[in-house]
């Protein structure tokens, strides 16, 4: 594939770029720093590929334009030695060039834009064609994602398990997602792995992706959704298929319920300052569809208390969770962490 061939050279180039930039400005303790230029999986990689192509093509115009502005200023500044000719104010050839070349460039970019959007189109990304062909008959892993105020619920319907504020996926398997939200719009985004898609209340969007290497990634919402927005962070753990199966078994044994009643409780405005997460084994079937239906019919209608959107102090942060307790679950018990394999 076109992307596959170019990607090795691209990765070397990006690796260099990464070292050059991060050497100067990051003291990150994380092995694989936050940086969307080190993609995992064909879709995220396709995005970065088009980023590089776009920038390189743009430089064809940007560099001469910058040079021209600086040179004309320098050469023709008063006392700069340039010949003064105020009658030179029109030129057909220049007009043809300055309209024509950008037009050609936009035409080329439009081609890449169309190819790019087909490659990373969330509903049926072309970039996944090669890997799904390679994987043959393996059934995609289906995950339903519901964003609440201001937490995440990831439901694995086929495995009958769910995870709050933590996402675990296996490598080497296509993953299909259905997404919705309970009250306001959020964006689903996992840096370097999954591109963005809106999650809208009362509507369902879809996402497809594929991850190649194990690792831990940062997921968050990118669409401002209220006071708990900054704390809508979760870890996405990518594990080998075997470890994933082991984890599913552990999750199935956890015994926590997420039926409609519990979900209504879960969906109440909650700011997850402690980055708490939890596993559920007894999950309401078709929870995503029920949520969408309930939102559309007004049955799930969560009103925010006034103090969430009007208070100048934030007592509920400290009262509810304290700060900095990073790895406990919402009810205080610790959950089983899937085996964490380092990246690469």
């Amino acid at each position: 594939m076109k992307i596959g061939n170019l990607s090795s050279g691209l990765r070397a180039f990006l690796g260099l770029l990464l070292i050059a930039v991060l050497a100067g400005c990051s003291n990150s303790p994380v092995q694989d720093p936050l940086w969307f230029l080190h993609p995992n999986g064909p879709i995220a990689r396709a995005s970065i590929y088009y980023l590089v192509v776009d920038v390189l093509l743009l430089l064809i115009i940007i560099v001469p334009a910058t040079a021209l502005v600086i040179w004309t200023f320098w050469r023709y500044r008063r006392g700069g030695g340039g010949e003064y000719d105020p009658t030179y104010n029109h030129s057909i050839p220049i007009e043809v060039i300055v309209w024509g070349i950008p037009l050609l460039l936009v035409a080329v970019l439009s081609y890449f834009s169309y190819q790019g959007v087909k490659d990373v189109e969330p509903y049926s990304p072309q970039a996944l064609d090669s890997v799904t062909a390679k994987n043959g008959g393996q059934k995609p892993l289906h995950i339903d994602v519901i964003s609440t105020d201001w937490q995440w619920l990831f439901i694995y319907p086929d495995q009958h398990v769910a995870l709050a504020n933590r996402l675990v996926v296996p490598t080497g398997r296509k993953i299909e997602m259905d997404l919705t939200s309970t009250t306001v719009t959020n964006d689903f985004y996992v840096l370097k792995v999954v591109n963005q898609i809106y999650m809208m209340p009362g509507m369902r969007t879809k996402h497809n992706f594929y991850v190649e290497r194990p690792g831990t990634y940062q997921g968050f919402s990118t669409e401002f959704s209220g006071p708990g927005f900054s704390w809508m962070n979760y870890k996405m753990q990518v594990v080998k298929p075997k470890q994933f199966d082991q984890w599913v078994q552990r999750a199935q044994a956890s015994g926590n319920r997420m039926h409609w009643q519990q979900f209504l409780q879960f969906a109440q405005p909650t700011i997850n300052t402690g980055n708490a997460w939890k596993m559920y084994s007894d999950v309401e079937p078709n929870l995503l569809r029920k949520t969408i239906h309930a939102v559309n019919t007004g049955q799930l209608n969560i009103k925010w208390p006034m103090r969430f959107s009007e208070e100048m102090t934030s007592p509920e942060f400290e009262q509810r969770f304290g700060t900095g307790d990073a790895e406990s679950s919402p009810d205080g018990t610790t959950a089983d962490e899937p085996q964490n394999t380092p990246d690469r």
């Binding site: 004309t72 023709y76 500044r77 340039g82 000719d85 105020p86």
Partner: peptide, 9 residues
């Protein structure tokens, strides 16, 4: 840019 060209900036 071409306005500056052959001008007296």
């Amino acid at each position: 840019a071409f306005t500056m060209y052959k001008g007296r900036v």
